[in-house]
Design a protein around this nucleic acid. Structure first.
Lengths: 256, 256
DNA sequence: ATACGTTATATTTTATAAGATATAACGTAA
DNA sequence: TTACGTTATATCTTATAAAATATAACGTAT
């Protein structure tokens, strides 16, 4: 006994984009014509045309551009908006599939079911959640040190327990998030000498309160960091100045 | 534009239990007959019978008991297995609905969508992810200090940025997770004096490697912590000894 | 001007699903 | 024995969806 599921987009209570129509749009993109796409999907031209027309009637922005006549008789092209829609649909689909799969695994166990939902949408208080790619793993006793590649050429070291690496099934090439509390990032004019990550960039903004200072910091690679420091630790920074963001590898959590 | 979705149980690649059939089973349970249930659902007896028969043919255990003749002509009853199946279906359905709804929140806003996607199925490398209830919020400039109530009577202070409190929509009474890296937990024989959280408990396990020690620590309230320390910082602990877990409020991330 | 291969549309045919109707078997109670 | 209201099943009708077919409009290349 397995679980299967589907989802679709609706507009004014009418379904207008499901997996079938997305398939059709993709074939149109590949072949350049409704006719050819219909043949690929082994449906009649009329059926394909009716689906496409239905989508177009409901969409608030045009999804396709149709031309008749001309060399080759004309054709149909997707708009950028349609391609965007297809991409997000696929991402939804992937997540939905994972969600359904987890149901199947959990079976009837109420505790596992509760855990599924609680971990399905985890929002953290960490202000920095940076997309990164895992480029190397060095195991060292109970610890493992990961090398992360951020946007641009910025790299980051993170030290987490070897068991976490195992639990999460991390391997080189994984897309992960580097999760860092803003209070664990120090801004300094000089690079680190004790093995902490030192990322060079430019101070983009400073916000002061009675005791603390919040600094918006743009890495050379383009990634944006938010650091929160105690007032007295501030070395008279100003907006636009070059500096380093210092982060201990021990304070970088990996999200998958 | 909204998102809608459904799921169903399959067996041998045939759908055999969806929301419609579950409805039908429930009506049979209420009325005691297929005939009456069909009338309630405004379908023909034949249609109802075919659905019921299809379910019964695929199920590995009988879902219904049918009797013909007798006072009132007979009737149909659900087996306990069927009632169990209905209950789990409803639990799944509730979770599935929540999943779909979360995405619907994003609507057409690509940025919100990206945020939701990035926090869907986020698993972290943090070994400690403790369920807690938020009992107070004290704002202090750019920072806010949260009081968290763990299982038993253990409490925990966490300092995060006020903007995070706002972003996450945190309020007193929220169920949250306290996310703590194992390397941010120190085990000590004496309580803290500098404002760190001091949680008393018992050492349940010690695992040593060349440089580090992993300590499994059970709080008096029952919560289990995992701490990873450098070898030399160990104060000759042994399993079963009472001790304190020291955690800086700055190193506790809140998960929602 | 003609050919081409599309889009666009209408009409007819076919296939499938749904509904309506009829009826047998059943076993208890009156 | 008869009446009852159900399950169980077959047959026919209707409604709906899908497929097949036919044809017009279109605009460029030859």
């Amino acid at each position: 006994m397995k679980i299967d599921g589907r989802f679709w987009l609706t507009k004014e209570n009418q379904s207008f984009l499901g997996v079938g129509r997305i398939d059709l749009l993709e074939w149109i993109d590949k072949t350049g014509s409704i006719n050819a796409a219909a043949k690929e999907m082994k449906m009649s031209y009329k059926a394909a045309w009716e689906r496409i027309n239905g989508i177009n009637a409901l969409a608030d922005q045009p999804l396709i551009e149709r031309t008749t006549g001309g060399k080759g008789g004309g054709g149909t092209k997707l708009t950028p908006y349609a391609r965007e829609l297809i991409a997000t649909f696929h991402r939804f689909n992937e997540l939905h599939r994972q969600f359904i799969d987890r149901f199947s695994e959990a079976g009837n166990d109420p505790e596992r079911l509760a855990r599924i939902l609680s971990r399905t949408f985890l929002t953290t208080s960490a202000r920095n959640q940076l997309p990164a790619t895992l480029t190397s793993i060095n195991e060292n006793g109970l610890h493992s040190t990961l090398t992360l590649s951020l946007a641009g050429s910025d790299t980051l070291l993170s030290t987490i327990t070897a068991k976490s690496v195992e639990n999460m099934g991390l391997s080189v090439g994984c897309d992960v998030y580097a999760i860092i509390k803003s209070s664990d990032i120090k801004i300094s004019t000089s690079a680190s000498s004790n093995g902490d990550n030192s990322l060079s960039g430019i101070i983009e903004g400073i916000e002061r309160s009675a005791e603390n200072v919040e600094i918006t910091f743009r890495l050379d690679g383009g990634t944006l960091l938010i650091a929160l420091e105690k007032h007295d630790s501030l070395q008279n920074f100003q907006v636009g100045a070059r500096a380093f963001a210092l982060i201990s590898p021990l304070h970088i959590i990996i999200g998958l």
